[in-house]
Design a protein around this nucleic acid. Structure first.
Length: 360
DNA sequence: TCGATTTGACCGTT
DNA sequence: AACGGTCAAATCGA
């Protein structure tokens, strides 16, 4: 087995172990719990895909199936109980966020109808007066929200809330690279609005732009408005990434059918941003993000070694400060990175009993 | 040296 | 005139 796969498994075990140890303290923090479950599921899913490359759409439950032998340790019982009670939700969240994070530009609702109805919810709109031809329900409770709004004039509005811990001042990776070209205080708004354009505007004449602003009444929510359509990814002459030119930004994402859309991202940080580093910040990929990328059915074009963006977001993602240091304060993400990079592989692992099937 | 970010200034619209 | 969007010089980091 590849060392990389083993590391992934160890990483997932560690995440789960840490979650277990802090479960009592986090019982009132559903967003953090969801985020933690999210990362755990991603880690194991990635590992599983590596173990079963021919079965990429494998059911996660196969990985976390209950053991045939009853566990002897309390931790094992607790772990299995967590799997029974929380894992399905975690998987659901992962799948939901996967779709939401991957398709911000696609005005079409990609979520199955049944799923949409369950994940809609907390994001709030600030853009009043719109005709919500494609608006979805607001009645949900799940913070992992993807909302779509389409105006009569073709402007599509989309809302998404992603549970993130720490400094989540940047929207998740939307798959494109952005360059910030302005920031302005907006009258009546407590937070400045940042202006971004496609990094490849100069090369391919891509006129896609976006504006990022944190909502006054909900600092945890970003409103990201997209203008224009990316034309860069359609360029047949787009050079491949490498020396001597911009990276290929060919993307598997279908081009937006709209000229504008709004994406709201709920973060967990109430800290007012000094700046909104776009998803195109030249920052390293956090491991957790890398795992997330590996979790994707459709790989994101490699851009990280150039001007790449993460999400972020990315998804997470990080906010690059002017001094080049990441300002992300994401316990789960950072912990994941620290643990993974530390190369630790402690054998004293209660998760060994929680996930006994992993030994098989 | 190059590319990205910051930020004050400029410009167009209302 | 006020406001929002964009420009571009200065700055910073890799």
């Amino acid at each position: 087995m590849e060392e990389e796969t083993l590391s992934l498994i160890r990483h997932g075990c560690k995440l789960a172990r840490d979650l277990e140890s802090n479960l009592s303290n986090l019982s009132n923090q559903p967003i953090f719990l969801a985020s933690s479950c999210d990362d755990i599921a991603k880690a194991f899913k990635t590992a599983m895909d590596r173990l079963h490359p021919h079965n990429p759409s494998s059911d996660l439950h196969l990985v976390f199936r209950e053991p045939q032998q009853p566990p002897a340790l309390d931790a094992c019982v607790q772990g299995q109980e967590w799997i029974r009670t929380s894992y399905p939700q975690a998987v659901d969240l992962v799948q939901t966020r996967f779709i939401a994070d991957r398709n911000p530009f696609d005005g079409r609702v990609l979520l199955p109808e049944s799923r949409v109805s369950t994940v809609e919810g907390s994001a709030r709109s600030k853009s009043g007066g719109e005709t919500h031809a494609a608006e979805e329900s607001d009645s949900g409770k799940n913070p992992a929200v993807q909302k779509l709004r389409r105006r009569k004039d073709g402007v599509e509005t989309r809302y998404e809330a992603t549970p993130r811990m720490g400094n989540t001042e940047i929207p998740p990776d939307d798959g494109y690279t952005w360059r910030k070209y302005g920031q302005k205080e907006i009258l009546g708004s407590k937070f400045p609005r940042s202006y971004y354009r496609c990094t490849h505007k100069s090369f391919y004449g891509c006129n896609a732009k976006k504006q990022v602003q944190r909502l006054d009444d909900d600092p945890n929510t970003f409103q990201v408005t997209y203008y224009g359509v990316h034309t860069c990814h359609m360029s047949s002459t787009a050079p491949s990434s490498g020396s001597g030119g911009p990276p290929s930004i060919t993307t598997t994402r279908p081009p937006s059918t709209s000229t504008s859309e709004v994406l709201q991202i709920q973060s967990s940080s109430t800290q007012p941003p000094t700046n909104y580093s776009s998803s195109s910040s030249s920052i390293p990929i956090p491991l957790s993000r890398w795992i997330f990328m590996g979790f994707e059915a459709t790989p994101i074009p490699s851009r990280r070694n150039t001007t790449m963006a993460i999400g972020d977001g990315g998804g997470g993602g990080g906010a690059a400060t002017r001094d080049g240091k990441e300002t992300v304060e994401c316990p789960v993400m950072d912990l994941a990175d620290a643990m993974f990079n530390s190369g630790s592989s402690t054998s004293n692992n209660s998760m060994d009993s929680i996930f006994p099937s992993m030994h098989e």
